[in-house]
Each structure stands twice: as C-alpha cells, then as structure tokens.
Amino acid sequence: MTTNESREIQPREKEVLLTEDPRTGVVFRPDVDILEQSDAFVIYADMPGASEETVDIQLEKGVLSLHARLAQTPPNVRTLYAEYRDGSYFREFRLSEDIDAAGVSARMKDGVLELRLPKSAEKKPRRIEVQAA
C-alpha cells in the first residue's frame, strides 16, 4: 500500500524494568533496532535525554550492557504536568561468540545510541568509550 501521507506513529509505552533503585529512580528499557550486516551487527537504542557523557557501555563475558542516567528536569521550574519521568536506562544483550570485542564502537546522536559490533572470533572483556557524533 502506498499513500502520499506518511503513516501516523504508533506510540509504544515506555517499558519500565521492575528493578527500581531509590538512588536512580525509575529504570527504563530502551527500544532497540538490531541489524545484521555482512561484516557487523548494529544496534540502535532510543535513549532520549542521555548524552555521550552519561552513557556507560560494558562488555564482559559475552554480555553487552547499556546503562545511562537521564538528564534532570530543567532548573528553577515547577512541574505542572508530566508524561515522562527522570530515571535511567538499562538493557543488556548476550552476544554470540563471533563478535570482535576489541572492535566494538559506539556513538550517540540526538538521544540515539548506535553500537557497531564487528563479526570475528575474539572475546575478552573491555570497556567502550562513547564518542560524540
């Protein structure tokens, strides 16, 4: 089916993880798209409010975990109405053994994290630095 007007967005409710930490507030599970290309897997994760400074990516024992703190409410304001909350993001993925852990790269643009996981046979724990887009 083709139409001139684009389809209206079908909103998904933000998924809240059951783990609720009093220090971090609510923990959201970011929506992701996962693509496989000939040489790599690519993960896109929606994390509005998170920046390259607040995102932390760990890869250890074949588990890739994403964690991000959310920006706080603007200062000197009183909230009248809220549809979303401050909190943090968390999601983890178990990687197959053919990922080259040393070659994993990440970048952040407009609140979307892009992770590139090159295919290979190595596997060792490391920490990934996030670069500004």
Binding site: I9, K14, D46, V77
Partner: peptide, 25 residues
C-alpha cells in the same frame, strides 16, 4: 504515558512555561 507521541512534560518558570518533548532520533 499511554498512546501519545511524543511524550511531553510541562513546567512553569518565573516568566512563563517550559515544554519538553522526547524526540530521540
């Protein structure tokens, strides 16, 4: 947060309003 896009928060500041909307990507 059900059934709407984008999600917004509305705040009141000293001289007006601050509306924030989550629009990643």
């Amino acid at each position: 947060t059900r059934g709407v896009y984008p999600l917004v928060n509305l705040h009141e500041s000293e001289d007006g309003y601050v509306l924030t909307a989550e629009l990643p990507g």
